[in-house]
């Protein structure tokens, strides 16, 4: 296979993801409504009770809506990563994943393409969210919209790869709902998406440690810093490291000879 053929395969996967996203209107709408509810209702309700001091990367005091916006961006990507994995489980149950898996490209390439397609869809959602968030004065510097792009790609890849790992573990669609609850909510709430780390540290040291090892915290911080034109090297290293780790696990999980798929009960006759 030549490079052009790889590119065509990737574009085909990307096109399918985009079509599925556009065809599933409820998914399209809920992806926007969810963070907007957090921003418009939750943040508005808590803005006067959750005072924030000046912390990096901000140069001044900021309203709570501005603080949680990067966390909500990461939340869109987290949900999208899990949704994409859910579609893998769905495709596997419905049989359509075989179309992908028997194509003559390496497994790692197919999984990475699927992952990148999901990330691309999530980034479109993020920009739509940020456009609406202007109503709440969430307005990063104009360059921030561009500078946050690499951070979102890296964060999206890590969260998507985590979803792929989970999807390789899960045998049936029904089991995925439980995993969503055990992964999405703990990851989101035990992160700096809603509370700054210093505040958590003041209230509980062990909770602070949990927040600190949560890769989602680092994804949020990576996005937060990049939105304001700053680079958080530690967050980038952690997110990058977890992406590689999850990706290796996912490729192993989907390997027909060694992975979890091969170890399960086999096809129905």
């Amino acid at each position: 296979m030549r490079a052009a053929q790889y590119l065509r395969a990737f574009l085909g996967i990307l096109n399918r993801e985009a079509l599925r996203w556009l065809n599933q209107r409820s998914r399209f709408i809920s992806a926007l409504v969810r963070p907007l509810v957090w921003l418009g209702i939750f943040a508005a309700g808590f803005r006067f009770t959750l005072g924030l001091s000046i912390i990096e990367p901000y140069d001044t005091y900021i309203p709570y809506e501005v603080y949680i916006a990067p966390g909500l961006v990461a939340m869109i990507q987290l949900f999208n990563g899990m949704q994409s994995s859910l579609s893998m489980v769905y495709d596997r149950e419905m049989g359509s994943m075989k179309t992908l898996m028997i194509s003559p490209f390496p497994r790692w390439f197919l999984l990475l393409s699927k992952l990148m397609a999901g990330v691309a869809v999530s980034i479109v959602q993020v920009y739509m969210f940020l456009a609406i968030a202007l109503i709440w004065d969430v307005e990063p510097p104009p360059l921030g919209y561009i500078e946050m792009l690499p951070a979102m790609i890296l964060a999206g890849l890590m969260l998507g790869a985590l979803g792929l790992v989970l999807s390789s573990f899960i045998k049936q669609l029904e089991n995925f709902a439980g995993v969503m609850n055990f992964v999405i909510f703990p990851m989101f709430f035990a992160s700096s998406a809603l509370n700054p780390l210093w505040r958590v540290k003041e209230s509980s040291l062990w909770l602070y440690r949990i927040y600190s090892v949560n890769p989602f915290t680092h994804a949020v911080e990576l996005i937060r810093f990049s939105m304001y034109g700053k680079f958080n090297a530690q967050a980038a290293a952690v997110v990058g490291g977890f992406f590689v780790f999850f990706m290796i696990l996912a490729v192993w999980g989907y390997d027909p000879g060694r992975g979890l798929i091969a170890k399960r009960g086999g096809p129905p006759e």
């Binding site: 030549r2 065509r8 395969a9 085909g12 179309t99 194509s103 490209f105």
Partner: peptide
């Protein structure tokens, strides 16, 4: 077309 793309076809 999805299938064709997965076989690298233009």
């Amino acid at each position: 077309f999805y299938h064709a793309a997965l076989h690298g076809m233009a």
